[in-house]
């Protein structure tokens, strides 16, 4: 009896689960499929689902016409650059807070988090004016700095929650075993901290890649990352859905794959360790 019910419920949930999954994934799947259609097939009515003339033309067109690669590299520079710089600044801070906490450590962490609460529009105008006056508008350096700053609290927090999980007894054991501070850092702390640093890196690259307030407001062409580049397709002069889809697929594919790998870290990273 119990077995029969189990199998039946498993079949039910398999159907329900896959329906939900496919429904939510559909817009992405549809974009992916459309990217291989001709422009005519893309707006055909009734729509073609699988049986259309598959072509790679859109991908070639996107690169040739709008220099996709240039914007892709901007995205890479800004997201990786901001994350790496952020890590370099945040690792010592998180380290100090996790391993030699004081009475004020908690307050400092809370305060850092509170900077995340500030809505971007509160800072948009002065930052825009400063960027304009200093010639930073539409520059990769400026965007990298801003994206680094908005993600810095998250980076510190993620690292802190990871570092805090390294048990103090292990560090004491290393000291009993005669490890000097340098050796303790090289042989014990770093190997134990690397997984945490890696997932922090991954999640923050994702966040930086998809950042779309500052990039849209502070870049137009030269330093425009993919967020801005894709937004330029919103102008209503004609329907280039296949090309839009090709550009979109290219823009989201790398980050989607990274996201799938980092799904576990996503939860604790975005909830600042409140949910694990």
């Amino acid at each position: 009896m119990a077995r029969a019910i189990n199998t039946r419920s498993k079949i039910t949930f398999t159907i329900v689960g896959w329906l939900c999954g496919l429904l939510l994934f559909f817009p992405i799947l549809w974009t992916f499929l459309t990217s291989f259609k001709t422009e005519g097939d893309a707006i055909a009515n009734p729509p073609y689902f699988l049986f259309f003339h598959w072509t790679l033309e859109n991908y070639i067109e996107v690169q040739a016409r709008s220099d996709y690669l240039h914007h892709f590299l901007n995205s890479v520079t800004i997201s990786v650059g901001s994350t790496v710089i952020g890590l370099i600044i945040a690792v010592p801070a998180a380290w100090a807070m996790a391993f030699s906490p004081t009475k004020h450590t908690k307050d400092v962490l809370m305060w850092m988090l509170s900077t995340k609460m500030m809505p971007a529009v509160g800072a948009l105008i002065p930052i825009y004016l400063i960027f304009r006056d200093w010639g930073l508008l539409d520059s990769r350096i400026g965007l990298t700095a801003i994206v680094m700053l908005i993600n810095l609290p998250i980076i510190v927090w993620m690292l802190y929650t990871y570092f805090r999980e390294i048990p103090g007894e292990i560090l004491e054991a290393a000291r009993m075993d005669g490890a000097s501070l340098a050796k303790e850092i090289i042989y014990v702390l770093t190997p134990m901290a690397v997984p945490g640093i890696a997932s922090t890196l991954l999640l923050n690259i994702i966040l930086a890649w998809n950042e779309a307030f500052w990039t849209l407001n502070l870049s137009t062409s030269k330093a425009a990352p993919l967020t801005t580049f894709i937004a330029s397709y919103s102008s209503p002069e004609g329907l280039f859905w296949a090309k839009l889809s090709a550009a979109s697929t290219l823009a989201i594919a790398p980050i989607l794959i990274m996201g799938w790998f980092s799904q576990k870290q996503l939860v604790r990273g975005l909830t600042f360790g409140a949910v694990k």
Binding site: P167, R175, M192
Partner: peptide, 28 residues
């Protein structure tokens, strides 16, 4: 601690999780 010539076994064992048993024992 290292200069006192003592060895300690901890309640949680405090083994280095990223090292093999061999490397754990060899560490000191």
């Amino acid at each position: 601690p290292a200069k006192r010539g003592l060895a300690m076994v901890f309640q949680s064992y405090a083994l280095y999780p990223h090292m093999s048993v061999y490397k754990n024992i060899a560490f000191p």
